[in-house]
Structures are given as C-alpha cells and as structure tokens.
Design a protein around this nucleic acid. Sequence first.
DNA 1: TCTTGATTGAAATAGTATAACATCCACATC
DNA 2: GATGTGGATGTTATACTATTTCAATCAAGA
Lengths: 156, 156
Amino acid sequence: MKRNAAQHDHRKCVHTALSTAEAVCKARGEKLTPVRKRVLELVWASHRPVGAYALLDSLRADGRSAAPPTVYRALEFLLAQGLVHRVESLNAYLGCAHPAADHAAQFLICRQCGTAAELEETDIASAIDRHAKRAGFTVERRTVEAMGLCAACQTA
Amino acid sequence: MKRNAAQHDHRKCVHTALSTAEAVCKARGEKLTPVRKRVLELVWASHRPVGAYALLDSLRADGRSAAPPTVYRALEFLLAQGLVHRVESLNAYLGCAHPAADHAAQFLICRQCGTAAELEETDIASAIDRHAKRAGFTVERRTVEAMGLCAACQTA
DNA sequence: TCTTGATTGAAATAGTATAACATCCACATC
DNA sequence: GATGTGGATGTTATACTATTTCAATCAAGA
C-alpha cells in the first residue's frame, strides 16, 4: 500500500463508494453502466486524484476497448451525478466522499504523497458567497483547493 | 469595448500595471525584459483570463518570433513575481491587481462575459487554513475560484 | 577581454480534452 | 416477434495546453 496517510480498510472505501453509487443512480433513474462503474472503481483505487489518461490505461489493461472519449464520457456522467470531483489544479479526478447530497467541497492536497482529503465546510463556501455578494456577484460553483503537506508527510 | 462590467479607463489599468511591474522588478533586481513586459501588457489587455496560446498568437501578430516556450517562460516569470495569476479552472492567466505584496487571492469569474474580479479576503484564506489545521494539514497555496454571474450580466 | 549565467530561439514531444460520425443495445410499442 | 427510438459506446481524428531539450544570444562582472 502506497498511502502515507492513516492506514485504513480501503476495500471498504471502494465497496461503500460503489454501493452508494448504485443506490444514487437507481434512485435517479440513471444507468451506472459497466464502463461507468469501472471508472468509478478505478478513481476510488486510491485517495489520490487520478488523471484521465491513467484511467484510460487501466481500462485498456482490463482488456477493454477504450479511447479518450470512453473515459471522458464516463467521467462526465460521474461528475454530473456528483460521484466524482474534478481537481482543477491537477487536471485530475477524485472519488466524492459524500455523493448523496449536494455539497460545496474543498480539497486538501498533499504535494508529497499526492493524497487528497475532501472537506465540506459550509463556512468556507459562505465566506466566499458573502464577499461575492458584496461585489454583486452570484456564485454558482466554487473551486477550493489547498496545496500543502498532510499530517503524515509533515512528521516524516 | 467588450466588457460588460462597469466602464472604466482601461488604459490606466494597463499603465498602472506596467509601471508597478517595472518598480517591483527593479526593487528585486529582476529583469522585466521586452518579451515579459509585452506578455504582461497582453494579459492586461482585458480583465478576462487569457489562454497561453492566445498570448502566443498576439506575440506573433506583433511580428515577433515566438513559440510556446516563449510565452510559458514569460508567464512563469510573471507568476513568480506575483504579477499575474493562473486561473486553474480555465487554464488561463490574469493580471494581478495587487502585485506589490504577498497575498492569497480569490477570483470571481463570470460565465457570461468572462471577466474575472480578484478578491483578497483574508478571512476566506484563514477559514481554509483553520479547517486544514484541524486535519493536521499545512497549507502552502490556495486556489479559490468562484464561477457565476457578475453584477452586470445578472441585470442583463 | 573573458567568462559566466540568464535569457531567448527553435524543434520536437508530452499531456489533456473534444468533435464528429458510426454502431450498438435496451426498451417501449405495435 | 418486428420495429422504432434514444441513450450509450466505439472509433478516428483533431484541438488545446504544456514541457523537454539543446543551441544561440546577450548582459554584467572579473
């Protein structure tokens, strides 16, 4: 296991993510097709943001026929369902830790080990919205990404 | 003039940005060479984030010999001096409104007219840092970008 | 003058993402 | 069961963003 962060039962993470996804899609009448499910599983293979072409390589390693649109279409679906997030500063994708509800997420990305933790702090979002409102600006989406060192990498 | 935001004397913006840049570089013993200065001027041609290849096209339109590294190197320098910001969610670059001091900036980007306003609200940065600290995470850089509608585009 | 280091020029390539069109499949309807 | 419809996928090509590498040039100090 490559993670530097606290050890945990990662299979449980993956399993939870996949079953939640099944439930969410079923409730919405959306189809979690095999490609989509597999891409979600691959995104959840680690707690690090993964690039689209890394996902593509993995799909191909499965023996599946795949081209860039294959993975981008799957990601588009998963993003629309809130099952994954896009990390803008890395052009990479990360499984969403709390996919059931709408939420404004923030990310803590470790420059050392690459892991990303997801926060959902409403006061960060509301601070942004408040200052935006003062400028007459209506916020629709927020990108909040902090780069630095995670707890494990600081001690090391 | 294409901006939907409040009208203003944009030549003054550009002039101020360029003279501040001269001063900042001089004070630091850094060289604001012709290419760098021209790229800064082009970035300031509007209050919208500009893509690197759009800058490249403009450099070429000047009659200057230019390749991608030309503009990326200039941008790298300007970013290092805090004279421009990179907008991660657009892969684009924006003149910094307050280049003299170190600061944590936030951006309000209008999806309609493309203009971006820069905020420098310490409480947004500190809210991020506070939650990060609770997670044992040390923040080194923050990316805060809000997408939505600016005042002008809302009324329209 | 010499030399050293930063800057720029130039060519190639890597990495990220989308467009366009064909094909297939599931499902509803007849 | 045949047919039609729309969503999903396959496939090829291309657009957009960024970096690597090495050569040439320039500026400033010894």
